[in-house]
Every structure is written in C-alpha cells, then in structure tokens.
Simulated assay, not measured.
Amino acid sequence: MIKATLFTFLTLISTGLLAQLPPVQLANVYDETKHEDIRQYLVSEKYDGVRAIWTGKQFVTRQGNSINPPDWFTAPLPDIWLDGELWTKRGQFSVLSGIVRTKIPNDLQWQTVTYQVFDMPDTSMPFHRRYQNYLSLITKLNSPHIKAVKQYQFSDNQQLSNYFNQVTKQGGEGVMLHLAEAKHTTGRSSALLKLKPYLDAEALVIEHLPGKGKYAGMLGALKVQTKQGLTFSIGTGFSDKERKYPPAIGATITYRYHGYTKNGLPRFASFLRERPEK
C-alpha cells in the first residue's frame, strides 16, 4: 500500500526538507499519432480548478504552498494521500482562485467548492486499481463536497473524440487520459496525458505595456518571458478588471496558444490566468 510513501512524504513536510515540492504526477500532451491504442487508457474530464494534494493532514498545491479551507471541509478526509482539484463549476476558475487563496477561509464561499479526487497515489499499484481504491474510499466517506472523478474507457479514437466534444461544448477545459496499467511516478509522464482544444504554458511577467484608446490608463499588454528565454507580448484575454489590476511584474501567468509561428513564438497567445500560488 502507500503507507511508507505517505509517511516519507509527511515527514519531509514536517521537517521542512520537501523544499515545497510534493511528489505529484504531471501530464504530457496527447498526440493521436503517438498514443494510438485508446483502449489502454482511462479517460476523465479535466477540471479547471486548483490542483490540491491532500497529504493526510492538509491541502498543499503542487508547488508545496498551503491551502486553508475551513475545518469542516477537511474533516471527512482520511489520513491518506489523495490528488485532485478544488473546483466550483465550469468557467469559474477566477472565482474559485479567490476563494482558495484567502488565508482566512470564508465558510459561505467554501460551501460552493468540491474536492474532485482523480488519484490515490501508490507507486506499487497501476492506475486502474488506484481508481477503484479512491472510488471505494469516497463512496464510503459519503461527503457531499468530496467527489470521485469518474473514469471512462473507450474502444477507439472516435469514442474519445465524441466524449471530448461533449465535455468542451458544455464548457469543460478538456480531458485527461491515464494509462491504466501505469504505476504512479513523480514529474511529467506519458502515463498521464491531457487533451485540450488549445495548448497552454506558463511565463513570467517582465513588463506592463500601456493601453491605448479605450484601454488608455490601463494595461495594454503583458510582456512575458518563458523558461526557455522567449520574450513576447500578450494583449488579449484580459477582463477590464484585470486590465486595471494586472498581474504584478514577477508573477507567473498561464497563457493559451495555438501552435507556433515560423519564428518559434506562440501563435495567438492569449492570457488565461495568473498562477494562484503567486
């Protein structure tokens, strides 16, 4: 089982040796030409929430920062390692982010939040067994705000495409594919894939470019830099409030894009959100 792994994880947190980096699994991008046999995967909706690892004692983000829900929210959760998303509903990420980032939790706001569990990590166990384990666990908890993410299995790519279209047309962000026989690993892995109608990535804000016309006196665009050193501007995707109060210089933002230009820059880059850990 996961007791030894969990004990090590909790010990590292308590002693400060974890360096704010919980051992989570990160997804690669699904490519139909590389991942042809869809029967090998279990598929679920990709929830546009805040990634939250339940250590058995507390919620932390994948960067290792603490999340502070009300005591009643965590009371039903067992002393076991879970992975999931704090979520309200589709298209409400900014509202959710405001709720989750508050150090003193608002009980009324947290009543709109659910914990969508999509893994019960165990390095000795394939995902299809981990799925059955977390499904059984959460069914027994019988808590209205702790949910088990349902996994589906498809026989061909057309069925996957139909499910993907159903989710995205209803406002969903995309779908996740878990390799059914894969054991849990740390870091980015092809055992976990994401399929979205667009690509996204993160970048560091390095400059605020002033707006013109109706945006005079507000943000016109963010000048950002990627980890690879690419520098470019993002001028779309902002609400009027975000233009008045843009992400600070030094903040990390997520942007969406559709492939690359011939110069290697993200094509049609658009602001998506500020990373909540910042």
Rank of each mutant, 00 (worst) to 15 (best):
M1A: 15
A4P: 15
T5Y: 10
T5V: 11
T8E: 15
L10W: 01
L12W: 05
T15G: 02
G16K: 02
L17E: 13
L18V: 05
L21T: 15
P22F: 03
P23Q: 11
V24A: 08
L26I: 14
L26T: 14
L26V: 11
A27P: 10
V29Q: 03
D31Y: 01
E32S: 13
E36V: 13
R39V: 13
Y41Q: 06
V43Q: 00
Y47H: 05
G49K: 01
V50H: 00
V50W: 00
A52G: 02
I53W: 00
W54H: 04
W54D: 03
G56K: 02
G56Y: 02
Q58S: 14
Q58M: 13
V60Y: 09
V60N: 09
T61K: 04
T61V: 04
R62I: 09
Q63I: 09
Q63T: 11
Q63C: 06
S66V: 14
I67N: 04
P69Y: 02
P70T: 09
F73K: 06
T74H: 10
A75D: 12
P76K: 03
P78D: 07
D79Q: 11
W81H: 07
L82E: 03
E85P: 09
W87Q: 01
T88H: 04
Q92W: 00
F93K: 00
S94V: 12
L96E: 00
S97P: 05
G98C: 10
V100W: 05
R101V: 08
R101G: 03
T102K: 13
I104F: 15
D107I: 01
L108E: 14
Q109F: 13
W110V: 09
W110H: 08
W110R: 07
V117G: 01
P121A: 03
P121H: 05
D122R: 01
T123M: 13
M125Q: 13
M125F: 10
F127P: 00
Q132P: 06
Q132S: 10
S136G: 13
L137S: 02
I138Y: 04
T139S: 01
K140V: 04
N142I: 01
P144Q: 00
P144S: 08
K147L: 12
V149C: 08
K150V: 10
K150R: 11
K150I: 09
S155I: 10
N157R: 12
L160K: 09
S161K: 15
F164Q: 00
V167W: 00
K169H: 07
Q170E: 12
E173Q: 08
G174Y: 01
M176R: 04
H178N: 10
L179S: 00
A180F: 10
T185L: 07
S189R: 05
S190V: 03
S190I: 05
L195A: 06
L195D: 06
A203S: 04
L204Q: 05
E207Q: 08
H208V: 07
L209Y: 07
K212T: 13
K212Y: 07
K214I: 11
Y215N: 15
Y215W: 13
Y215R: 15
G217M: 03
M218T: 08
L219W: 02
G220S: 01
A221C: 12
Q225Y: 14
Q225S: 10
T226S: 11
T226D: 09
K227F: 07
Q228V: 11
T231G: 04
G235Y: 08
G235A: 06
G235I: 06
D240C: 05
K244W: 12
Y245D: 10
P247K: 03
A251H: 05
T252P: 08
T261L: 06
N263C: 01
G264R: 12
G264N: 10
G264T: 11
G264P: 06
S270D: 02
